[in-house]
Design a protein around this nucleic acid. Structure first.
Lengths: 238, 238
DNA sequence: CCGATGGACTGATCCAGATCAGCAGGTCGT
DNA sequence: ACGACCTGCTGATCTGGATCAGTCCATCGG
């Protein structure tokens, strides 16, 4: 259902297309926090749609470090790209216990050719994900730690707001400071200091698994946050 | 022609599909180095296929810095994503004078619905581009300057080799040290020092618009370079 | 009840890479 | 033929964030 809403934001799906979409939802599965769901280099025959909980996609480096590429929240795809690229080029790990719906590669490819507009809608969703990765790259490459953190949390907040799990006041956030460090390219120690800085400046508070935006306007100005790349909605095809 | 070869690596395109592909190539255009081809926030009605020359896609920041997201070489798409996301979320600038083939948004979307397998092939090409952005993110987030530079030049070399414009010996490279700095999230000064370091260690030489891999094996080991994400070839559909 | 584990948090020290300030050669416009 | 500008290159200095080495809870399993 969240998927229909999400894709429906892009193309007005016909009854037939929604039927195909509903038809390919196969198996509901659950995974526990911390245990890899997809592993780097593994070739997978399925993608997943996240129904509840949070996950993250990341890459490991030879020296033991890792870079978290993105976090996934309910409604997001997991491992969509690895269906096309044969082999997954990254790992996916549940941050919390998660529920997913498994979609088999073969089914999805068939659906693509049967209902081209559906493929387009999913393509659009993937494009939006890529825009987020690009924004992430910009942050890691050119923003200092504080702006990077602020931008990151604002983006998460905006995404959660779209699925009704957050607002300009704040959101529930199961991430540890270690996870944020791996995402932002910082050390966990520095993540802690930056959070203190933002708190002391009255911008936001991260405490007990909850992010509070103490000054939303100030924060967006400080982080130079422009949510355009998330707002992309509306029928492109009529 | 390079496009047919590129997409053909993924799905065996039928004669009809190739015809559609050839059919939608519209206008050939040229752009001079340095003048933006697509500007951030602009809504465009066309995408381009790069025929000759190099370009780069980048994002500007409020404080005047910029982050180059990726370089495009002949055969690559320019602005494909902005066709789906209404509005371009980044700018594209020719690094050299370039020749492109313009493809109109409407034509492309029609082609997508007419020949689903073609859409799939283009989707695959986009996925590969995204994998490169991810790899780029990993480099900027977690690799030190030298490894980052080495990895970057190895990737460029591998991409150029695929289109017959490079080898394990090296490649012609029109990039300035300033451009590399903006791509790697470094200062131009440091780019220069890192290049000297790599040269002094007998790994690679960057001089007079040419990159020479003095020790290809040593370099891949040093940079922990794994070209898997570029090698993705072979028919997924039979 | 007690040890183990994991997450938040802190001070002290260190260093990779930024910044500042320059020089040298090439090319372009006038 | 003379600046102006771009690109490559360098030394000196400064700093944001890493690293090291902890403390202080809370939770959990036995």
């Amino acid at each position: 259902m969240p998927l229909v809403r999400k894709l429906g934001a892009f193309v007005a799906l016909s009854r037939a297309e929604i039927a195909v979409l509903e038809g390919l939802r196969k198996r509901r599965r659950t995974f526990v926090a911390g245990r890899d769901l997809v592993h780097q280099g593994q070739s997978d025959q399925a993608a997943y749609i996240l129904m509840s909980g949070w996950a993250c996609s990341y890459k490991d480096l030879a020296d033991g470090q890792r870079q978290i590429v993105d976090f996934q929240i309910p409604g997001d795809f997991l491992g969509l790209r690895s269906i096309l690229l044969h082999m997954s080029d990254h790992s996916i790990e549940p941050v919390t216990d998660i529920e997913v719906t498994e979609v088999l590669k073969a089914d999805l490819l068939t659906a693509f050719t049967q209902t081209p507009r559906l493929a387009l809608a999913i393509f659009w969703a993937a494009s939006r994900d890529e825009a987020m990765v690009v924004e992430h790259l910009v942050g890691v490459g050119r923003r200092d730690a504080a702006k990077r953190m602020a931008h990151f949390l604002l983006e998460l907040g905006a995404r959660l707001t779209l699925i009704g799990e957050g607002s300009k006041a704040g959101f529930e956030c199961p991430l540890t400071q270690y996870l944020m460090a791996d995402a932002l390219g910082l050390s966990a120690v520095h993540v802690n200091r930056v959070l203190r800085l933002l708190r002391e400046n009255g911008l936001l508070t991260f405490r007990d698994g909850y992010v509070t935006f103490d000054d939303y306007a100030g924060l967006t100005a400080f982080a130079d946050f422009d949510p355009t790349y998330l707002d992309q909605v509306g029928p492109l095809l009529q």
